[in-house]
Write a protein that binds this DNA or RNA. Structure first.
Length: 727
DNA sequence: CACCATCGCCTTTTT
DNA sequence: GGCGATGGTG
């Protein structure tokens, strides 16, 4: 067999990793070092050189996009349909397993998937039912508590309250939430993973089957795995005894980069990289450090920055390519000046024949995009913003899906509540209270409770009972009609029959129009939907698809646009020209991340990820004054700028030449209210001691300053009363 | 019960 | 500044 198509495109380090003998393998792959290539070629290698069956390959990624790319590249390399292999996201594969083995997993057959927003709504409902104060028990925090415990594999019964009443309450809420989910037949994202893990753990026969089948387990972005994902992989690929027969067992092949771990906040454990080596003592370790993307200067700058992190596995990117241009640094007067600078540079590049799609604007938080959008609009620079609400997450789409979900599963309480009075049909909060009480008392779903209330008794007013009856009749009718027609016709019938279309048409102005268009689009999505081969009804398959693939809008993808996105979104991508904007203390590193060292190091990795997206040109910008959330603040340049070797940086506009623009319109720099109280000044406070002024807000008697005290932390003070003494 | 005004909040994100 | 949630009014 000719293996040259697999091996020829690889460098030495890549080839060694791809052709490693069967057994556990860890590849530390730096940014731009050909990580995806190594994964896909490894798959091709074990099939063609080791004689593995495509059937025996399980390849796991984090995003649908990454999974799609991997599948396409394997198909291209091997010339076999990618459907022969199990390639997918952790969640997608967990879902697939649970659908096949729903009984063993303790689920109902038609279980539905709850997305993050659904989950939060459900939690809110539980809080309300428990009559808890939502300011004390913040739904988002409760959600975080539940999810982070699930991510670590902990069920409510595993948790100890440690005599802490707050914790005790959270555990109770977690348990109540689980009960509600079970009764409604819904499963959230974290639950998919945990259930899949428990499925294997508690069914040895099943596990043995999958161990036998999947001899090769490949994991991408391994630094992003959480505890349960790791434990799941460990089940499938247990450590073999030293004297195990060669080729026995399942072989984990994982690829990751500790320097690109940026998802700690959602449960990712970089430590899994080290854990892997401990758990598989015989693991072969490979390092990919040759970079094929960026200039020498960019790599040197990125290496210099990331060197400030402690406890790295250690890795130094290098390139055979040119040194390239220096890193450009621009100090803007304010955020509008920053956007204008970027706009100018873009226009220059485009005038010289550059493509807009080769340029990316990267920022820390989504709110920063607005200023750039305004600047681009007035300069007529086409752009595209990535992120934000996706198709299946839009309110009107979720309304329609709720109808469909109710048709698929009457016990889905969350969906029931969402649409029982949408469009309004005279079922207000009062009636719903009665309904909820009935459901709670009888331990049934809202749907069943509604049936009881209509059937007899006078708990509900006549009008409400009629409305409820009408609603239930509507759902039954839609379910009956839909059973015989194609999926997209069923969706269409639901939209019209439910009155949703009418409802949104009444919504005046463009908003309503856009929503109706989106609903039409949903019909098209249903028309174009081809379910994977499974025993699932088309409607159920479509609903699962909607939850697992929230649907990246692909409009205008091919137009030549400047690309705008957060640093997180940019991971895995590359652009010839990158502008990293808003490099200011408090914004990047973000205030809320810089409190502890771990958070700060993650911010630094995020900066590293951003810098290593750039192929040829890298611009760093920051503003001395920034208006965010409606208030002006003054920031110092990010420490990350200082952490880059300074000889690699060229200031676009030397600071001495900074000419502040004349006071234009509403952009009037705030005057310090008290002499000596200005940005960066050291001051002394009677009670709090010495500190540095980080921020100034407001004027005159209203003026407030944010001071970072050496002892007392950061505080906001009224200048009028604080009696600060300049030092 | 529906609509509108006011208040308050505000990282990052995939599934 | 912009969105969502809440509360008062029609």
């Amino acid at each position: 067999m000719d293996l040259s198509p697999i091996l020829n495109p690889l460098n030495d380090a890549q080839r060694e990793a791809v052709t490693a003998p069967l057994g556990p393998v860890l590849v530390l792959a730096g940014a731009g070092s050909g990580k995806t290539r190594v994964l896909t070629h490894r798959i091709a290698w074990v099939i063609q050189a080791e004689g593995a069956s495509p059937h025996g390959i399980l390849a796991v990624t984090f995003t649908n996009k990454a999974a799609g790319e991997m599948r396409a590249r394997v198909e291209q390399l091997l010339g076999i349909p990618g459907s022969a292999l199990w390639i997918g996201t952790f969640h997608g594969i967990a879902h697939r397993l649970l659908r096949m083995h729903w009984r063993e997993a303790g689920l109902v057959q038609g279980f539905q998937i709850l997305d993050s927003e659904d989950q939060q709504r459900l939690i809110k409902k539980i809080l309300r039912a428990a009559e808890l104060d939502e300011t004390r028990w913040v739904p988002r925090d409760v959600k975080w508590f539940i999810n982070s415990n699930k991510d670590e594999g902990r069920r409510p019964q595993h948790l100890k309250d440690g005599n802490d009443p707050t914790r005790r309450q959270l555990i109770r809420l977690y348990a109540a939430y689980e009960e509600t989910c079970a009764r409604s037949g819904v499963v959230d994202f974290a639950e998919l993973l945990l259930r899949a893990f428990e499925l294997w753990r508690d069914n040895p026969g099943l596990l043995a089957h999958y161990r036998q089948r999947f001899r090769h387990v490949l994991v991408d972005e391994f630094q992003d795995t959480n505890a349960i994902q790791y434990a799941w992989m460990r089940l499938l690929a247990p450590t073999l005894a030293a004297d195990a027969a060669p080729g026995a067992g399942s072989h984990p092949f994982v690829v990751g980069d500790d320097d690109q771990s940026i998802y700690r906040f959602r449960g990712a454990r970089v430590a899994n990289l080290q854990q892997f080596v401990r758990d598989y003592p015989q693991a072969k370790l490979f390092r990919l450090e040759q970079n094929y993307r960026s200039t020498g200067t960019i790599l040197e700058a990125a290496n210099g920055l990331i060197g400030h992190n402690a406890g790295r596995l250690g890795k130094k990117l290098w390139t055979q390519g040119a040194r390239g241009e220096p890193i450009h640094l621009y100090t803007a007067f304010n955020e509008r000046d920053e956007a204008e600078f970027v706009t100018h540079r873009i226009r220059e590049r485009v005038a010289q024949g550059g493509l807009r799609r080769e340029i990316a604007i990267l920022y820390r938080s989504n709110a920063q995009s607005r200023v750039f959008e305004e600047a681009f609009l007035s300069a007529r620079v086409p752009y595209r913003v990535y992120g934000g609400l996706r198709f299946f997450e839009r309110a009107e789409i979720k309304d329609a899906l709720a109808y469909l979900r109710l048709i698929a599963n009457r016990n889905d309480d969350a969906s029931f509540e969402r649409v029982v009075n949408l469009p309004t049909r005279g079922l207000g909060a009062k009636s719903l209270d009665v309904l909820r009480a009935q459901a709670k008392g009888a331990g049934t779903s809202l749907w069943d409770a509604a049936g009881v209330l209509i059937g007899g008794g006078d708990a509900l007013g006549g009008r409400a009972a009629t409305a409820l009856h009408g609603f239930m009749g509507l759902i039954e009718r839609l379910a009956g009609d839909g059973a015989t027609v194609a999926l997209h016709e069923q969706v269409d019938q639901v939209l019209k029959g439910s009155g949703l279309i009418e409802h949104y048409k009444r919504d005046k102005a463009e908003r309503g129009e856009a929503r109706v268009e989106n609903l039409d689009e949903l019909v098209s999505a249903a028309r174009g939907f081809t379910p994977e081969a499974s025993d699932l009804a088309p409607l159920a398959a479509f609903l699962a698809h909607a939850a697992l693939e929230s649907g990246e809008g692909q409009a205008d993808e091919w137009e030549d646009c400047v690309q705008m996105m957060t640093l997180h979104t940019a991971k895995g991508l590359e652009f010839p020209v990158v502008f990293m904007c808003g490099l200011e203390e408090g914004l990047f590193p973000h205030q809320r991340s810089s409190a502890d060292l771990d958070g700060l190091e993650e911010e630094r990795r995020l900066c590293y990820v951003g810098m290593t997206r750039a192929m040829r040109s890298l611009y760093l910008t920051h503003a001395e004054q920034r208006r965010l959330h409606g208030v002006d603040s003054y920031g110092q340049a990010s420490r990350f700028v200082r952490e880059i070797p300074q000889e690699l940086i060229e200031e676009v506009r030397p600071r001495v030449q900074v000419s502040r623009p004349a006071v234009v319109g509403r952009f009037r720099p705030a005057e310090p209210a008290v002499a000596g109280v200005r940005l960066g000044a050291r001051v002394r406070h009677g009670k709090f001691g010495d500190g540095v002024i980080l921020n100034v807000e407001g004027n005159g008697a209203q003026a407030r300053v944010q001071v970072s005290f050496e002892r007392q932390g950061t505080k906001w003070l009224m200048v009028q009363y604080a009696n600060l003494k300049p030092l």
